[in-house]
Design a protein around this nucleic acid. Sequence first.
DNA 1: GCTCATGGTTTCACTATATGAAACTTCGTT
DNA 2: AACGAAGTTTCATATAGTGAAACCATGAGC
Lengths: 246, 246
Amino acid sequence: MSNTIKKAFEIVQLIEKNQGKYTLTDIVKILGINKTTAFRNLKTLEELNILEKINNLYYLGISLFEMGSKVYIKQIVIEKIHPILRELSEDVNETVNLAKIHNGMVLYLDKIESKRSLQIQSSIGDTLPLYCTSLGKSILSILPEDEMREIIKNINFERTTNKTISNPKKLIEQINEIKLKGYSIDDEEFEEGLVCISVPLYLKHHNFYGSFSLSGPSIRFDQATLLELSKKLKKYKNIIIEKLKH
Amino acid sequence: MSNTIKKAFEIVQLIEKNQGKYTLTDIVKILGINKTTAFRNLKTLEELNILEKINNLYYLGISLFEMGSKVYIKQIVIEKIHPILRELSEDVNETVNLAKIHNGMVLYLDKIESKRSLQIQSSIGDTLPLYCTSLGKSILSILPEDEMREIIKNINFERTTNKTISNPKKLIEQINEIKLKGYSIDDEEFEEGLVCISVPLYLKHHNFYGSFSLSGPSIRFDQATLLELSKKLKKYKNIIIEKLKH
DNA sequence: GCTCATGGTTTCACTATATGAAACTTCGTT
DNA sequence: AACGAAGTTTCATATAGTGAAACCATGAGC
């Protein structure tokens, strides 16, 4: 049903993956669709400012920015939480990330970069696997048991570092630990030299299953520091829950 | 051409205007389309997470947030400018807004609220007329002459306060003044009690015609203060231009 | 607890509408 | 100037979206 919309969306998704990389012909080849169809759909999408064409290369268009700014979670949840996360970031002088679960993945919602942060590893709007980020593990720990197991069942474990969790058993073990401790750690499990610590964030009224984290280089994030940070995270978590109660 | 996409977009635009207000039947009535068509398109849009249905009411979906976060202007321009605007906001302790021109309107791109700001008058992603905001007038002052005149020709002047500019002649007068002074003021021209001051921002390399502003209650924004703020704005403008030079 | 009304959902025949092969244009390169 | 590669337009065709009508679910009123 309504294949045309889906086809158009497929094109937009392709452009989302690689902005400024693809030309009409590329798109036709990659998606295996007819040239004329692609041409017309691209034209329409351009007219609607959903895509933008510069030198025959396609980019996401400004309509998406406009509409994206008005999504409930952005206007209500993120905007309200943002100033609190900003305080946290200034308090500990580290980079803060906010995320929620979406389609069995971690979706990055907000980010406050500390002045001393170097690497840019994630951008708002990115999605990453649940099992290799502290954010994801935190979220898993607050999901209803059966939902959590269903999601884990469908995970395809892929290593990105030699510390990456590589099987469901180990993941579930860690999740049980997180449930007790109230926070999760990613100790270079996704990227060498990068350590993150997260606390889960459940906002009942907004049907929000998410988490937020502090991240930085492993040199700075030793055991003692992590314990300190976990306390800070929990403190700000309570502030957020209080603010978004109704 | 590709009417299906346009029809779908029309629906999304309607939802954008009033999230959580419309049901299938409402949409059918408002847009004057067939019920079955609307039903199917809504279903598809829902499947793609472009729309979300809660209790038969439609909201913008999370796909729009994801894609919106990756629009060039957001990832490159806004993210880079944001920390500078944050400094400005903290420096003067007032609310900062960033905007660009889009379809002859002011499009709000970013906002840093000061702790003492009360009213929320604009949200990121909103569009407002050019002639009744300081942001818009600043932008008009840096557009190529013919483009500026073309845009002004198409403006439908509508008063929202008794100070609103109500004819092209007065607007062009003010624009010429702004060109000399290097900043523009909105003295309760859009909303009673609200004063804004903006400087234009042209980023050649990014083909960016925009501006940023400070805004607050008229009590606080007297003549002397405005002069001070204009100097601050110009200072930060230069910092931004320097940072986004290449 | 039955009836009615309202709004959401499904069916199915129809034709309007999107499709795609081929022709054509544009532009940059040799 | 000729060639090739990429974008654009044409037009016949049939697929895929359309919409009237029937159907179902829910909730209000009696």
